[in-house]
């Protein structure tokens, strides 16, 4: 369900302080999302590609993940150019494609790919648990951090329970079809999953209480900011400034 294929490695990016990676990924994504000029957006894509290169992830698998995002982007290309008001450039029957629509589509495509690539390089390269502790050290509220960590822990248990239910149905010759029986069966399964998840949440809480839990979480993990982290953070800072400059510097 969650394979964390990219989480373990020994590249320069994998060795970076997770806090730095999370902060930079956040800033870069936000900045990229509000860009409007092509040189800036292209620079953002370039930055993302540099990060992917430095993380030494298998290209094929990264492309496979990009395909998912670009599947959605494809729908934007199918709709937006024909519905966006502006200077007409193409005409197919009653459909008129506008220059502004095409420009917007291109921007969205580049931006979303840049953000996803940056997140893959910076955030997918750490285990979910590490991400949780990094967020904890960045002073995200405890409740949110532990919500993330426990979701991660129990998503596998819930998946196993779903598999059990699905198997139980299959061994009694259940074949999904387009009929009320199928809908009902799936509704029961989902309902049963909710019931089990809530019962489990209660038992987990009881087990925690038995071990002295009183609402406060403690974190075992400490991160150390190394000299290489300082070098990377300056490079990251400069690249963000360049990105901002490309977007907001007055055109001469």
């Amino acid at each position: 369900m969650l394979s964390e294929t990219f989480a373990f490695g020994d590249s320069a990016i994998h060795r970076l302080d997770p806090r730095l990676r999370v902060v930079f990924a956040g800033l870069l994504s936000i900045l990229t999302a509000i860009l409007n000029r092509f040189p800036a957006v292209i620079f953002a894509v370039f930055l993302a590609l540099v990060l992917i290169g430095a993380s030494r992830l298998p290209v094929r698998q990264v492309l496979a993940r990009l395909a998912v995002v670009n599947g959605l982007v494809l729908f934007i290309w199918l709709i937006l150019p024909w519905t966006f008001e502006g200077t007409p450039v193409v005409e197919i029957g009653p459909l008129v494609g506008s220059w502004e629509g095409i420009r917007l589509c291109a921007l969205i495509t580049l931006k979303s790919n840049a953000i996803i690539l940056a997140l893959i390089a910076l955030v997918a390269t750490m285990p979910v648990a590490t991400l949780g502790y990094a967020l904890h050290h960045l002073h995200l509220p405890d409740k949110l951090v532990y919500l993330l960590l426990m979701t991660y822990r129990y998503i596998f248990v819930i998946e196993t329970e779903y598999q059990q239910l699905a198997r139980a149905a299959r061994i009694r010759c259940f074949k999904p079809g387009t009929n009320l029986h199928t809908y009902k069966t799936y509704a029961y399964m989902v309902g049963m999953l909710f019931v089990r998840a809530s019962a489990r949440a209660q038992r987990v809480h009881q087990a925690m209480v038995c071990r002295g839990f009183s609402g406060k979480f403690y974190c075992l993990h400490e991160f150390a900011f190394k000299s290489s982290d300082w070098a990377w953070s300056s490079a990251m800072g400069i690249s963000l400034i360049v990105l901002g400059g490309l977007e907001w510097a007055p055109i001469v």
Partner: peptide, 20 residues
């Protein structure tokens, strides 16, 4: 599975002592 809620074994075993 009700008892072990932390991502890693060490954290789970340390949970009680931390609470104490």
């Amino acid at each position: 599975d009700d008892q072990l809620f932390s991502p890693t074994v060490l954290e789970d075993v340390a949970f009680g002592p931390l609470n104490l």
